[in-house]
């Protein structure tokens, strides 16, 4: 048989640094995640229905730096944040298991730690668009709309810090939880459904148990109530819960730790016998 293909030749070029490779991996992952039509839809709805009205409200000096206004932003956005997490996060690792392409990363000199860091970074940055960016935008508009006096900034900067802290906690929780479920379940559909279900089911179970025995601690079962409870502490609001706000914080930290452990186990300890 006659041969018409090119012949193999050794490649003598230099390799780029791991930092550049990682940067490419993350930006490529971000582009891929944000190109999803569902992700775009959820973003448009979230910004259109919730963030933009808040931006206009922030122009009113009366509401501009009101802690309750910033705190309630997260409560209003929770449905969309969950949807967004399911849309973006479900396939982050599961899709690489589904199409068995995960093997390709590890045969390109890419370490498992690098892979995990890259995937978690993609999730963190994607989720920041709905958990941290709206707060920054609203705060910036509030500042610009005010007289921009140093005193005003000094007096209210803690509101931004509180919002950023809560946003960071929500983002970390979502990042690790979705990555954990995505890697544990290894199936995009199941992972998506379970991300959504965990928030709703935990709230439903908590409500049912609360109505049965009236014990306020039952709210610790609900993921979102835990975040809200921590939020009330950060925004210096009255504690409406019948337990110290440290408890929900510990619950959230526990879930973050468990989810991280799941990612670690699946990627580092489990063999890739696809």
């Amino acid at each position: 048989m006659s041969r018409f293909y090119a012949r193999y030749s050794s490649w003598a070029g230099l390799r780029t640094s791991m930092g550049k490779r990682m940067s490419f991996f993350i930006t490529h992952g971000l582009r891929r995640a944000l190109r999803s039509k569902w992700a775009i839809l959820v973003l448009v709805i979230t910004y259109g229905l919730i963030v933009m009205p808040r931006v206009f409200a922030a122009m009113n000096p009366f509401f501009a730096f009101d802690p309750l206004s910033y705190f309630s932003l997260y409560d209003e956005m929770q449905l969309f944040i969950m949807l967004y997490a399911a849309v973006i996060g479900a396939g982050i690792i599961a899709s690489d298991f589904n199409d068995k392409s995960i093997v390709l990363y590890f045969t390109k000199g890419f370490s498992k730690a690098g892979y995990a860091f890259g995937k978690l970074s993609v999730l963190f940055l994607s989720f920041s668009l709905v958990t941290i960016l709206p707060l920054i935008v609203i705060f910036a508009v509030a500042l610009i709309s005010s007289d921009l006096g140093l005193d005003l900034i000094r007096d209210n900067i803690w509101v931004l810090a509180a919002g950023l802290s809560l946003g960071l906690l929500v983002t970390l929780l979502l990042t690790t939880l979705t990555a954990g479920l995505s890697s544990l379940l290894g199936d995009v559909r199941y992972a998506g459904a379970s991300i959504f279900a965990i928030f709703f089911l935990s709230r439903l179970v908590s409500e049912i148990l609360l109505s049965i025995n009236g014990n306020e601690h039952m709210k610790l079962i609900s993921l979102w109530d835990n975040l809200s409870a921590v939020g009330t502490y950060l925004f210096r609001l009255d504690n409406p819960y019948g337990f110290p706000q440290l408890y929900p914080f510990l619950v959230i930290v526990g879930i973050i730790a468990l989810s991280s452990l799941a990612v670690y186990y699946i990627l580092f300890k489990k063999e890739l016998s696809l």
Binding site: G13, T16, R21, K108, G109
Partner: peptide
């Protein structure tokens, strides 16, 4: 795959 493998943009296209 080539970018993940550490090839620069131009190298990666050629390779």
């Amino acid at each position: 795959m080539a970018r993940l493998n550490g090839l620069g943009t131009e190298e990666c296209r050629k390779r």
